[in-house]
Each structure stands twice: as structure tokens, then as C-alpha cells.
Amino acid sequence: MMSDTNARRYSTGAMVFHWVIAVLVIANWQIAERAEALDMPAKIEMFGYHKAVGIMILVLTLGRLLWRFTHPVPPLPATISGWEAALARTVHVVFYVLLIGLPLGGWLANSLSGRDIEMFGLFTIPPLPVRENGDLAGRIFDAHALGGTVFLALIVLHVLGALKHTFVDRSGGIFRMLPFGRA
């Protein structure tokens, strides 16, 4: 029989997906930031890593969604107000949109630039079947960067919310997504 604490905690699979994707997102942000400061050809090489990690994030996110649809999500703590619950659900939906949309947008922009995506020297993902269009690629890259900035702001909001629910409300917050602690 499942304990009350386990009923309030995410499944192990959900936790693994969450933390691996979170680490990859932060690492990929840092890769992009560092790449911007480099000169050619190091800049191209570093952005190659950014693209490959982005594809990994896309694949893991699709796996996470499949997991989420096949495994129950614990209910929100009863202490969360209606507006907090609505905000949490909205942020999670936007996270999924960005976790899928940013890599796809990056792949599309690269395809419009006639570039493929090299996956760490293991294999190559070809461009999407689109005509080259540098102007459109540039606009998509700009939207990609803006989306990344919005994503970072939402990550900060998400972390602050988890910390508030853990240490102020004492409703388990962050321990719902960790295999230890009191959820």
C-alpha cells in the first residue's frame, strides 16, 4: 500500500526526467552564453554543443510527457490557494511549450540556414525539408533567444515558488520532486 507521503510525491521516473532536464537546460543556457563570447571557429563548435543538448532536451521532454500521461501526478497541497494553483499549472504548461518549442525552433532556424545538427560526433540530424531563408532564420533565432530569456525568468519563479512552499508554507514543496524529505 502506498504511504501518504508517497501519494504526495512524484514518481521516481518523473523525478529523474525533471532533474536531468533541469540540469541540461541550465547547462545549455550556459553553453549558449559562453559561445556568444567566443570568436570563430570556437563559437561555431560551442553552438554545436548547444544544438545537440537542445535535441537531447527535446527527446527527454517527449519522454517526460509520455511518462506524465501514463503515471499519476500527485495532487497539489491543500494549503495552496487558487491563484497559486493556477499559476503553477500555467507555468508548467509554458515549460512544456518552451521545452519542445525552443529545440524545434532552433532546428527550424538551422534548417533555414542550411545547417544540420551534429550530435556529439555520433550521428547527424539533417536539416528539415525547408528552403533556405536567412532572414526568416534570423527572426526565428531572435525568437529562440527571447524564449530562452522567458524560460529563465520562469525557472526563477518556479524555484522561488518551490522554496516558498517548502520553507514558508511548510507544505513539502521541493520534496515532492525529491526522493527524500517530507513531502
Rank of each mutant, 00 (worst) to 15 (best):
A52G: 03
L60G: 04
L38G: 14
V59L: 05
I57V: 14
K43M: 09
G48M: 09
M56N: 14
A35M: 00
H50W: 02
D39P: 07
A42G: 06
D39G: 15
G63I: 05
I44L: 09
A42K: 09
M56K: 04
H50A: 12
Y49R: 05
A52I: 13
A37G: 07
L38V: 09
A52P: 06
F47T: 00
V53E: 03
K43Q: 15
T61S: 11
G63P: 00
I57P: 08
L60C: 03
A35R: 00
A35I: 00
I44T: 11
M56S: 15
A52W: 14
G54W: 01
Y49T: 01
I44A: 15
R34G: 13
H50F: 02
M46Q: 12
I57N: 08
G48C: 05
E33W: 12
K43G: 08
A52Y: 12
V53D: 05
L58P: 11
K43D: 04
A37P: 05
I44F: 13
I44N: 11
I44R: 12
E45H: 14
E45P: 03
A35Y: 02
Y49N: 06
T61R: 11
L60S: 13
I57C: 06
L60P: 07
F47H: 00
K51E: 08
L38W: 07
G48D: 02
L58G: 09
L60F: 14
T61A: 13
I44V: 11
M46H: 06
M40F: 11
T61F: 01
R34I: 06
T61N: 08
I55D: 00
I57R: 10
P41W: 01
P41H: 03
P41V: 04
L60M: 08
G48A: 07
K43C: 09
L38I: 10
G54P: 02
M46I: 09
M40N: 12
M46E: 05
L62H: 04
K51G: 01
V53T: 04
Y49D: 07
D39N: 14
I44Q: 11
I44D: 07
G54V: 00
L60N: 12
E36L: 12
L38M: 15
A42V: 07
M56R: 08
L38A: 13
V59T: 01
P41R: 06
R34N: 14
I57T: 01
V59H: 03
A37V: 14
L62Y: 02
P41T: 03
M56Q: 13
L62W: 00
I55H: 01
T61P: 04
I44M: 13
T61W: 06
G54F: 01
E36D: 13
L60H: 10
M46A: 07
A52K: 10
A42M: 10
I55L: 06
M40K: 14
E33H: 14
E36V: 13
H50C: 05
G63T: 03
D39A: 15
M46P: 02
D39S: 15
L38T: 08
E45D: 11
A52T: 04
M40Q: 12
L62P: 00
L60W: 09
M46F: 07
L38Q: 15
